[in-house]
C-alpha cells in the first residue's frame, strides 16, 4: 500500500514539474504544452471516431505481426535448436541478418510491398522474429541432459520428447522472447506509420498533427496513447507469464 502511495507521489510530482516548467516559461508553451492541456486533448481524442480507428489500426497490425512472428520463429527455433548441423550452417546468415536495423528496410519494403498495412506488418515481423527465435534456440540448448536421457531410457519417441520434455522446458524462455518482441513490434508498427505516412494508424496521426507545427498537444496526446498501449501490452503479458509459468522456478529469472 505504501509503495502504491509512493508511485502516485512520483507520477504527480512529474506532472507538477512539467506543468511548472511550462508555466514559468522554461520551455515554450507552443512547443511543449502543459500536461493539463495534453490530458484534456487525450480525453477529447479518445471520444473521436477517427482517432479510435487509428488506434485500432495500429493495435490490429501489431497483433497480426506478433502472431505471424510467433508462427515463424517458434517452429524455426525448435528446428534449429534440435538439429545441430542446421544451426551451425545457418548461424552466420542469422548473425548477419539480425543486426540490420529493421528500419533500414523501410524504403525497400515500401517499394516491394507498397504503403498499405502489409508494409508495417512485414517490418514488424522482421524485427520481432529474432528475440523469439534466439530464446527458443537458447532454451533447447539449455535442457538438462538428464531429463532427455531419462525420457530416452523410458523409450519415449522423438516426437513425444519434443512435446513432453522440450516444449514445456522451453515455454517460459519463448514467452520472454514474445514479450520482448511485442515491444519491438509496436515500435516498428508506429515508426513505419510515421515514416511512411500510412493511410491510418497512430503513427500517421502523429505525423499529420506534427506537420502543422501548432498541434503539439495532439502530438503529445498521441504519444501518451502509444505509451499507454505499450505499457498495457507489457504489463498484460507479464501477468499472463507469471500465471502460466508459476510452476517454473526459472520463469521469474527468465522474465527479466
Amino acid at each position: 500500500m505504501r509503495s502504491l502511495y509512493r508511485n502516485l507521489v512520483g507520477l504527480i510530482g512529474f506532472f507538477l514539474l512539467w506543468e511548472g516548467a511550462v508555466r514559468v516559461g522554461l520551455v515554450p508553451e507552443l512547443f511543449v504544452p502543459p500536461p493539463s492541456e495534453v490530458l484534456a486533448t487525450t480525453v477529447g481524442l479518445l471520444g473521436q471516431e477517427p482517432f479510435i480507428r487509428d488506434v485500432i489500426a495500429t493495435v490490429l497490425a501489431w497483433a497480426i505481426a506478433l502472431l505471424i512472428s510467433v508462427a515463424i520463429a517458434v517452429p524455426a527455433g525448435l528446428l534449429l535448436g534440435s538439429v545441430p548441423w542446421l544451426r551451425n550452417a545457418t548461424r552466420v546468415i542469422v548473425e548477419f541478418l539480425r543486426p540490420i536495423p529493421s528500419v533500414a528496410l523501410i524504403p525497400l519494403v515500401l517499394l516491394v510491398v507498397g504503403g498499405g498495412p502489409e508494409a508495417k506488418i512485414t517490418l514488424a515481423v522482421y524485427a520481432a522474429v529474432w528475440p523469439i527465435l534466439f530464446n527458443t534456440i537458447y532454451a533447447l540448448s539449455e535442457i538438462d541432459p538428464v531429463l532427455m536421457d531419462t525420457a530416452r531410457a523410458c523409450g519415449t519417441s522423438r516426437g513425444r520428447m519434443l512435446t513432453s520434455v522440450a516444449l514445456p522446458h522451453a515455454a517460459p524462455f519463448v514467452f520472454t522472447g514474445v514479450r520482448m518482441s511485442a515491444a519491438i513490434a509496436l515500435i516498428l508498427v508506429v515508426s513505419t506509420e510515421y515514416v511512411a505516412g500510412a493511410a491510418s494508424g497512430l503513427g500517421n496521426f502523429i505525423l499529420e498533427a506534427s506537420s502543422g507545427g501548432s498541434n503539439m498537444d495532439e502530438v503529445l496526446a498521441g504519444t501518451v496513447v502509444a505509451g499507454l498501449i505499450g505499457y498495457l501490452i507489457n504489463d498484460g503479458l507479464e501477468r499472463i507469464g507469471k500465471r502460466a509459468f508459476r510452476w517454473n522456478e526459472v520463469a521469474g529469472e527468465a522474465a527479466k
Binding site: 509512493r6 508511485n7 507521489v9 512520483g10 507520477l11 510530482g13 512529474f14 512547443f31 511543449v32 515491444a183 509496436l186 515500435i187 508506429v190 515508426s191 510515421y194 515514416v195 497512430l202 503513427g203 502523429i206 505525423l207 498533427a209 506534427s210 503539439m216 502530438v219 503529445l220 498521441g222 504519444t223 502509444a226 505509451g227 499507454l228 498501449i229 505499450g230 505499457y231 501490452i233 507489457n234 504489463d235
Partner: peptide, 20 residues
C-alpha cells in the same frame, strides 16, 4: 517513486517523440 513513470516512458515508441 519513479518505477511506474519509467515503465511508461520505456513503453513509448521513441520515434513518436521525434516531432517534440
Amino acid at each position: 517513486y519513479v518505477g511506474p513513470l519509467f515503465a511508461f516512458f520505456r513503453a513509448i515508441p521513441p520515434p513518436t517523440l521525434v516531432p517534440v
